[in-house]
Structure formats: structure tokens, C-alpha cells
């Protein structure tokens, strides 16, 4: 209670800063949106896997971190950090494909609880394997890009974050087009709608599941490489990305790429403002309170709709 009171006291002061010097609001907003794009990138695949395979992938964050380590290994081997993004994407596609062939195919049409348990197990296994191979040391790679200074240096925009933002948007658009226009995308959507009917129509749903899961891992691979260049990675940092992806997908709804982008950007901005005003310790608490509010509101809105139906 004491700490909350103190935080509110600090919070009022901090809020005042934002009003008296709006330039910092701009900084928080820009950074929040750029960070949010990276979260959205991590969440695309989760929405896809959830929608198509009815699996909540609790190893999502570990895929991101593994993508980061792949990029780290490639850049150690002399590859330019930017080229390590597609390379890590491809490696994670293979990892996702293998994981599906080994574990995931067994749990696709099982109870949701079993899939949570299985992917949770995979996440622990991946953490420990990464720890064994890459050690628990914090790793990072310099992208070689610098920073833009706006408004007399009061607002800084990291070029690598802009690159991540652009990558997230481009990948999002590609994904949406892929799902709409290509044959494979259509089979994925058909399987998501009704797997049994899709099978009757001659779609190899097993292949669809495999591709979907591998695709998810691949997108996480790209995300991880960008995280490596923007911040730092460590084998046990995955959970932060899993939780955020989970939240974004809940807010956006499954199978809604545009929604995922918007929810991701919103989450990033909200998190940054909460961190500034309330302090870093209430960042997560604020976000989760927000989630509850959104869910309650959605329930309320749905009920309103239902009333009109009758």
C-alpha cells in the first residue's frame, strides 16, 4: 500500500512533467510505437498458430530468443547483422518444422490444456539448451546504425528501431497477402475454419499445420534478430515476449493481422507511458489491468449486441 501511495505521488509529479514538457510525451509515444511493432512481430505467429491449430504456444518467447541467438551466431561467424535476419528466419523455420514433426503433431487436435503443457515443456527445454550452448551471459550485436536527434536532442529515434518497425509492417502485410491470395494461405484459412471439412475437400491438414507452425517460428526468428540488435538477449528472457504476445492476441482476436499490429503498437505505447508515470515496477501491472478492462468492456459490448438480436 505504501509503495502504491508513493508511486502515485511520484506519478503526479511525472504526469506534470509530461504536461509542462510535452516533448517527452512525444519521445515516449515514438519509442512506444516502435517497441510495440517488435511485440506485434512476435505476436503474429501466436495468433496464427492459435487460430489454425488451436494451440497456445507458450514457447513463443523462446523462439524469439533462439532467433536472437541464431543471429548472434551468424554475426559471430562474420555475417553482417542485417543479413543475419533472413538467415535466422530460415533457421527458425527449420526448427519449427522439426518441432512439429517431433512433438506438435501429437497435440494438434488434443485438449487445449495438453498443448499448453507441451509447449510449456518445450519452452523450459529450449531455455536450458540455449543456456548450455550459449551460456547465461547477456549477448548483443551492434547494428552499426545510429540515432536521429530531433528537437535539440530531446527526442531520440533509434534507426534500428525504425528498421524493426518497417520490418514488422512489411512482414505483416506480406502475411496478410499470403493468407488471402496464395493457395497455401487459402488452405491454412480453410483448415482454421473447419479442419474436418478441409480434409474432406482434399487438403492435407497435417502439412498445413506443419507449415503454420514453422512459419510462426520463422517470424519469431526475424523478431529475435531485431531484438538482439535493439536490446540484449539472455536464455531466460523469453517469458516477457510470450506474455506480451499472449496479451496482444487476446486483445486483437485470433487470425486478425491488422488487429495484432494495432494492439502491439497500443501495448508498446501504453507500457512506455505507464513506466514513465507510475514507475517501471507498475508497468506490467498497469498493462494487465488494462487487459482486464478491455475484456470486461468487450463482454459488455457483446451483451449489448445480443440484446438487439432478440
Amino acid at each position: 500500500m505504501m509503495t502504491l501511495g508513493r508511486a502515485l505521488l511520484f506519478g503526479m509529479d511525472n504526469l506534470q512533467i509530461l504536461f509542462s514538457a510535452p516533448i517527452f510525451s512525444l519521445q515516449l509515444l515514438i519509442d512506444g510505437l516502435l517497441i510495440g511493432a517488435i511485440f506485434a512481430l512476435a505476436a503474429y505467429g501466436m495468433a496464427l498458430v492459435w487460430g489454425v491449430m488451436k494451440i497456445i504456444n507458450f514457447a513463443q518467447g523462446e523462439f524469439v530468443i533462439l532467433g536472437g541467438y541464431m543471429a548472434f551466431a551468424f554475426s559471430r561467424a562474420g555475417v553482417h547483422p542485417f543479413f543475419s535476419v533472413p538467415m535466422s528466419t530460415v533457421s527458425l523455420y527449420i526448427v519449427g518444422w522439426l518441432l512439429h514433426r517431433l512433438v506438435i503433431f501429437r497435440i494438434v487436435e488434443e485438449d487445449l490444456f495438453i498443448s499448453i503443457l507441451a509447449t510449456f515443456g518445450i519452452s523450459i527445454l529450449m531455455q536450458q539448451l540455449m543456456n548450455q550452448v550459449f551460456t547465461a551471459d547477456v549477448q548483443t550485436v551492434d547494428s552499426g546504425l545510429s540515432t536521429w536527434f530531433l528537437f535539440d536532442g530531446n527526442v531520440t529515434v533509434l534507426q534500428i528501431k525504425v528498421v524493426s518497425f518497417a520490418t514488422a509492417l512489411v512482414l505483416g502485410i506480406c502475411l496478410a497477402v499470403f493468407m488471402k491470395k496464395t493457395r497455401l494461405g487459402q488452405t491454412i484459412r480453410a483448415t482454421a475454419q473447419n479442419a474436418r471439412a478441409a480434409r474432406i475437400m482434399g487438403i492435407d491438414t497435417d502439412k498445413v499445420y506443419c507449415t503454420t507452425f514453422a512459419l510462426n517460428a520463422a517470424i519469431c526468428g526475424a523478431c529475435g534478430a531485431l531484438v538482439l540488435m535493439t536490446w540484449v538477449i539472455q536464455p531466460f528472457m523469453g517469458l516477457a515476449y510470450t506474455i506480451r504476445s499472449f496479451m496482444i492476441v487476446i486483445v486483437a482476436g485470433i487470425g486478425n493481422v491488422a488487429g495484432v499490429v494495432l494492439a502491439g503498437l497500443g501495448l508498446g505505447a501504453a507500457e512506455n507511458f505507464a513506466g514513465f508515470i507510475l514507475g517501471a515496477e507498475f508497468q506490467a501491472a498497469f498493462i494487465f489491468s488494462l487487459l482486464v478492462v478491455i475484456l470486461v468492456w468487450r463482454n459488455f459490448a457483446l451483451r449489448l449486441k445480443r440484446r438487439y438480436l432478440y
Binding site: 517469458l239 513506466g275 514507475g279
Partner: peptide, 21 residues
């Protein structure tokens, strides 16, 4: 007086505050 979360990935909010204050 910020307390960083265990799953810390980014310090932007805190550092913006440092810039401001």
C-alpha cells in the same frame, strides 16, 4: 526511484525520465 521488473527488456521509460529530470 524505479524498480525494474525481473523480465526487464527495455529501459526507455526510466531513461526518458532521467532526460527530463
Amino acid at each position: 526511484d524505479d524498480k525494474l521488473p525481473k523480465e526487464l527488456t527495455d529501459m526507455t521509460a526510466t531513461l526518458t525520465k532521467v532526460k527530463a529530470l
